[in-house]
Amino acid sequence: MKYFIIEGTLNSTLEIDESVMKEHIAYSQKAIERGVTLITGLKENMSGGILIMKANSIEEIKAYLNSDPLKISGSQEYNIIEFTPHYTHPQTNEWFDR
């Protein structure tokens, strides 16, 4: 399994349609339910989002992102960083104060 940090950057020249955002949220929730997304969140400056995901390949990640309603609508672009986790906190939810 490979692990990825993905940074989404919103196209600041476009206003995001509310229906596209709802589709994006539902799309993201399905990935969480399938266990391929660990965390999603908005950047503090609201310029996009951050995801931590796992997949067998970067191609799988690209296919997932290319099907994201925000990407399809031209509202968001993604930067993908592959990483290898060495150490993890045993209680991730507690670490993130959830």
Rank of each mutant, 00 (worst) to 15 (best):
D68M: 01
N11H: 08
V20Y: 11
S75G: 15
R34E: 15
P85C: 00
R98S: 06
G49P: 09
I81K: 14
K2R: 13
S75N: 15
I58P: 02
K54Q: 14
K30W: 07
S75M: 01
V36M: 13
G35S: 03
L42I: 03
Y27D: 04
E59K: 07
K2L: 03
L51R: 11
G41M: 00
I32Y: 13
E44W: 07
L70Q: 09
I50L: 14
L14D: 01
I5Q: 06
M46P: 02
I6T: 06
P85F: 00
N11V: 03
S67Y: 04
A31P: 10
M46W: 12
T88D: 04
G48E: 06
D17Q: 07
L10D: 14
L10G: 03
G48S: 08
E94I: 03
G41K: 01
M53A: 08
T84H: 07
N93T: 03
E23G: 03
E82C: 05
H89T: 01
D68F: 06
Y27T: 00
E60C: 07
P69Y: 04
E59D: 13
L42E: 09
T84N: 11
I81F: 15
P69C: 00
V36H: 08
I39C: 04
Y64V: 02
L38W: 11
I81S: 12
S47E: 11
E59M: 02
G41S: 01
P90M: 00
R34G: 05
G35V: 02
I39P: 09
E44K: 08
H24T: 04
E60H: 13
Y87N: 10
F4H: 06
E77P: 03
Q29Y: 09
